[in-house]
């Protein structure tokens, strides 16, 4: 491959937490871009919230504190109502390759792109995190009815959907989830499956997990500030687009590797994997997810945003049509 010529550019990238599968895409961008520019375009990765707390990353970009950052659209739902469409519960997205397609198609819609523009940022990449699954203690929820009366840890749309099933959700902060499960404060907690459950050690204190409930995802993105993007030489912009495909591929591999590592550990720990049939899932989606989707569409349409059309895009792309 040819080396991309250009001036020396350094981006500070604000991340939170320790290096993990979730932050691997930033590492891959950093490595691939440095290789292709012979070290002229470099990403300095700052872990542990050194430059900013996760929630303030968008502000940090807006004020020009750093050039790029991770940010999750669920941090402040009303800031990015359109992006929240991708976070709706129980969207029928079966696997990561489909998810990639849905994400890229969705954010190519003019209304979705304009939302980020209005916030002063440009989206470079959306992290492919696996769907949420529950891990819990006590009676496994084999049937729809079994969720009734369960105390769970879930947020926003997923919490709405699960409360329609009779579960009551507490908003326990992630670091307290382990102890809460261990001590029976809650019966089950949802996290991206499997790496987050493993990272928080939930399998040490759990009896079962849902393997294909697939209730949705909170999306995190890599953003660059509009100023930093505008100042970037064109050949570097093209390069980012070029390496993006490779980053997506590596992202999927990292998540597969995490499954290959953690699922056997879950099995060894004696956890029961609960699989739901399509016949079980379909009525769930109609009952608990459809109303949440409809409410989101209504809210968007009421605010003059093309909610109906956007949901259509998601469903059709997910369907492969």
């Amino acid at each position: 491959q040819e080396v991309v010529e250009g001036p020396k550019v350094t981006w500070n990238v604000s991340l939170w937490g320790n290096p993990r599968a979730f932050t691997q895409p930033a590492e891959d961008f950093k490595r691939l871009i440095a290789e292709r520019t012979d070290g002229r375009f470099t990403w300095e990765l700052f872990y542990g919230g050194q430059l900013s707390g996760p929630r303030e990353n968008l502000d940090g970009l807006q004020i020009g504190a750093f050039e790029a950052a991770y940010y999750s659209s669920a941090f402040s739902p009303d800031k990015n109502p359109i992006a929240m469409g991708l976070d709706l519960p129980f969207l029928p997205i079966p696997d990561l390759p489909t998810r990639e397609k849905v994400i890229e198609t969705y954010f190519a819609q003019p209304a979705a792109a304009a939302e980020w523009d209005g916030l002063g940022v440009k989206r470079l990449y959306t992290v492919l995190v696996p769907q949420f699954e529950f891990m819990g203690v006590g009676e496994p929820p084999i049937e729809l009815e079994d969720w009734n009366g369960k105390r769970i840890r879930a947020l926003s749309g997923l919490a709405d959907a699960m409360s329609a099933l009779g579960a009551s959700s507490s908003s326990i902060s992630p670091p307290e989830v382990y102890t809460s499960l261990e001590r029976g404060v809650i019966d089950a907690a949802s996290f991206p499956f499997s790496y987050a459950h493993g990272a928080y050690g939930l399998h040490e204190v759990s009896d079962w997990y849902t393997a294909n409930l697939n209730p949705g995802v909170n999306h995190a993105h890599i953003f660059v500030s509009k100023e930093a993007w505008a100042a970037l030489p064109d050949q570097y912009k093209t390069l980012i687009e070029e390496v993006k495909q490779e980053v997506y591929a590596l992202n999927m591999k990292a998540m597969d590797d995490a499954d290959a590592k953690w699922i056997p550990i879950f099995k060894d720990a004696g956890l029961v994997a609960i699989e739901y049939t399509d016949e079980q899932r379909a009525p769930w989606i109609e009952k608990v997810a459809r109303p949440v989707w409809d409410r989101w569409v209504e809210e968007q349409e009421a605010a003059g945003r093309p909610g109906k059309e956007l949901l259509q895009v998601i469903l059709e792309t997910a369907n492969g049509s």
Binding site: T179, S180, R183
Partner: peptide
């Protein structure tokens, strides 16, 4: 705390 009624916070 130890019986599980309470989170540490």
């Amino acid at each position: 705390l130890y019986s599980g009624w309470l989170t540490p916070t």
